[in-house]
């Protein structure tokens, strides 16, 4: 009886996830698997001819190419710039907005608004702000030469600033959720015990927030690895600083769109996948041990 019921319940469960599973299968699992096959074939020199099986040869070729190495360096630098800044600023905004003050709701809306801002719009806004003629920088008396978005030193940080800004909304929301899960009484206990606000923050709030910070780190890392739009809209392959801002995802697109070498693009995709997976696993192993989960 109870066994039959359990079987029926399980069947119902599978039935309910079936639509989602179909969508995932078509748009995620199949392309994901197909990508591994693509990596083993070399694209023909002219479209229309059959692809040639080259096995792992192509993998070595891509991994040793200077374009890939530049792209890798740029991507890693980018991740290092975006993740800590995005999390820290999100946390500070969340702490500021957590106080129960009149009108704070307006700020919460503003802080989380970047989640619903499209990358294209924000890239255009930032592009204007960084414009060497009409932008904010010349107005401030800062006029790097070459202009910031063509500058081999400053183009990547400039894109990182945009990415951080874009990520702030999510970071703020995640951190706010984490903060509101901390029992207010624990913070109050620390105050009564004689802790200054600074001590409360570093000795109580941050440790109790560590599961959230950890989660945020994983999400931010994946987000940074996958940044694409800002580069596509503001940099482009003809930019003077291009190879310093050629983030992996953008590189993949270029490899397909311009070089038309799908096999190489597939290899790059696999590298991006392994990189993301590796960093996430590393974070899971290293950081999670130090995370304090309250019961």
């Amino acid at each position: 009886m109870s066994r039959r019921r359990r079987v029926r319940e399980a069947a119902l469960g599978y039935l309910l996830v079936l639509p989602a599973l179909c969508v995932f299968a078509v748009f995620v699992f199949y392309p994901f698997a197909q990508n591994f096959r693509l990596a083993l074939f070399q694209a023909p020199p002219f479209p229309g001819l059959p692809s040639r099986y080259v096995g792992l040869h192509q993998v070595g070729q891509v991994l040793t190419s200077s374009s890939f190495l530049e792209s890798l360096v740029a991507t890693v630098l980018f991740v290092v710039m975006v993740v800590p800044a995005g999390l820290l600023i999100g946390l500070l905004l969340a702490v500021a907005a957590h106080r129960r003050l009149r009108g704070m709701a307006v700020y919460r809306v503003i802080f989380s608004s970047t989640v619903v801002t499209s990358v294209a719009v924000s890239a255009l806004v930032f592009g204007t702000l960084m414009d060497p003629v009409v932008g904010l920088l010349p107005w401030l008396g800062l006029n790097p030469s070459p202009p910031i978005l063509q500058n081999t030193t400053w183009a990547l940080p400039a894109i990182a600033v945009m990415a951080v800004w874009q990520f702030l909304g999510l970071s703020f929301i995640v951190m706010s959720a984490g903060l509101s899960s901390i029992p207010e009484e624990v913070l109050e206990a620390a105050r009564v015990d004689g802790a200054s606000e600074r001590t409360v923050f570093w000795r109580v709030t941050v440790p109790l927030l560590s599961p959230t910070i950890f989660f945020g780190t994983v999400v931010a890392t994946i987000y940074a690895f996958q940044t694409f739009g800002q580069v596509d809209i503001l940099i482009g392959p003809t930019n003077a600083a291009f190879e310093h801002v050629n983030l992996l995802v953008y590189n993949i697109l270029n490899t397909i769109e311009i070089a038309r070498t799908t096999g190489q693009a597939a290899v790059l995709s696999i590298v991006l996948f392994l990189l993301t997976l590796g960093v996430t696993l590393l974070q899971l192993r290293l950081v999670e041990r130090r995370v304090h989960y309250a019961q």
């Binding site: 029992p183 009484e185 624990v186 206990a189 009564v192 304090h292 309250a294």
Partner: peptide, 13 residues
């Protein structure tokens, strides 16, 4: 002053 909270408010970490 020292306070004992109803929830105890121990530092879980």
């Amino acid at each position: 002053v020292a306070m004992v909270f109803q929830s105890y408010a121990l530092y879980p970490h």
